[in-house]
Design a protein around this nucleic acid. Structure first.
Lengths: 150, 150
DNA sequence: CCCGCTTTGTTGAGAGTTCAAGTAAGCTGG
DNA sequence: CCAGCTTACTTGAACTCTCAACAAAGCGGG
C-alpha cells in the first residue's frame, strides 16, 4: 500500500527538486568558472577559515559539511596539491589528522567570495520576498536532522 | 562593493544548502541502494513513461529534466546497456534521436517507484505542515526561471 | 543555390563522488 | 592485559558529471 503523491504533492515535489538543483548547479558553475573550484571545496575553505587557528580535525570537518570522510579525504588531497591546505598528524590522538587552511587557501577564499556571494544573491535572495525567506528558513530547519530527533 | 550576507541571511542560506543537499543525497542513496539506479536515471524513466508512446526526442527530454545534452547522452547509453531504453533515428529530422522506454525500463520504474515515494514522504512531506508545503511550493516556483522572465 | 550559423546529438578526457575494503590507533570488558 | 569492537582516516575502482571539441543535419539570407 504505497502512499502515492497526489497531484498537488507531485507539483510541490517537482518544484522543490528543480529549484534546489537549479541553485546548486548555478552556484557550482559560477565557482568553477570564476574561481576554478567546485562548491564543495569552497565550503571546506569557509569552514576552515572560521575555525580557531584555521584548523579542524578531518572528522569534525566532515560532520560539519555533511560530507563523507572518503569525500573529504579525496578533496583534501586536491587542496593540498593546490597549496590551499595541509594536513598534520595529531600528537594526542594518532588516528587524527588536522586539516589546516594555508595563507594561499585563505587568499583563494577571499578572492572567490565576492563573486560567490553575488551569485547567491542573484539565484536566491533577490528572487524571494522577506516573508518567503523567513518561511524558507523555517522549512529548511524543519528538514534538518537536528530538528527531528525522532 | 560586495553585498555581503548578514547573519540572518547566512543562516537561511546555510539551512537551505544543508536541507537541499540532505534531501537530494538521501533520495539518491535510497534509489541506488534499493533499485540500483541514481536519481537522474529514475527521473529519465519517469519522464519517458509519461510521454506519448513512451518516447521523446533527446533534446526535449534534456530540457524537461534540466539536464545537459551531454549528461543525457551518457546516461542514455547506460540505460540502453541495461535494456531499459533504446534510441531510434528520426526520419523527419535526421539530427534527432528518439529516446524510447522499453518494457523492461517500465518494469524497473514500477519496481522502484514505491520505495522512492516512501523515501520522498519520509524526507520531505512527513516533516512539514500543510502550510509549510504550500509556502515551499510558492518559493520554489519563484526560484525557477520560467517564473522570472526578466 | 550555397555559405555560414544554428540545432541536435555524441564522444573523450578530466574531475568529483561513492562504496567497499583496508590500516592503524584508541577503548573496554573479562 | 589483550581480544575484540569502535573510531579516524585513506585508498582504489567504478561510476557519473562537466566541459570542450566534434560531426552532421537543418535553416536562411544573399
Amino acid at each position: 500500500m504505497t502512499r502515492w503523491l497526489d497531484d498537488d504533492e507531485q507539483r510541490t515535489w517537482r518544484a522543490f527538486l528543480a529549484a534546489s538543483q537549479l541553485v546548486q548547479e548555478e552556484l557550482d558553475r559560477q565557482l568553477q568558472r570564476d574561481s576554478g573550484m567546485p562548491h564543495a571545496y569552497y565550503a571546506m575553505l569557509v569552514k576552515l577559515s572560521e575555525a580557531p587557528d584555521r584548523m579542524m580535525r578531518m572528522s569534525e570537518l566532515a560532520t560539519e559539511l555533511n560530507s563523507s570522510q572518503s569525500r573529504l579525504s579525496h578533496a583534501m588531497k586536491r587542496l593540498e596539491e593546490r597549496g590551499w591546505a595541509r594536513r598534520e598528524p595529531c600528537a594526542a590522538d594518532k588516528r587524527v589528522s588536522w586539516a589546516i587552511l594555508t595563507d594561499a587557501g585563505l587568499a583563494a577564499l577571499t578572492a572567490a567570495a565576492p563573486g560567490h556571494v553575488e551569485a547567491v544573491r542573484q539565484t536566491l535572495f533577490d528572487r524571494l520576498t522577506p516573508d518567503q525567506l523567513h518561511h524558507l528558513r523555517e522549512i529548511c530547519t524543519a528538514l534538518l536532522p537536528t530538528s527531528n530527533p525522532s
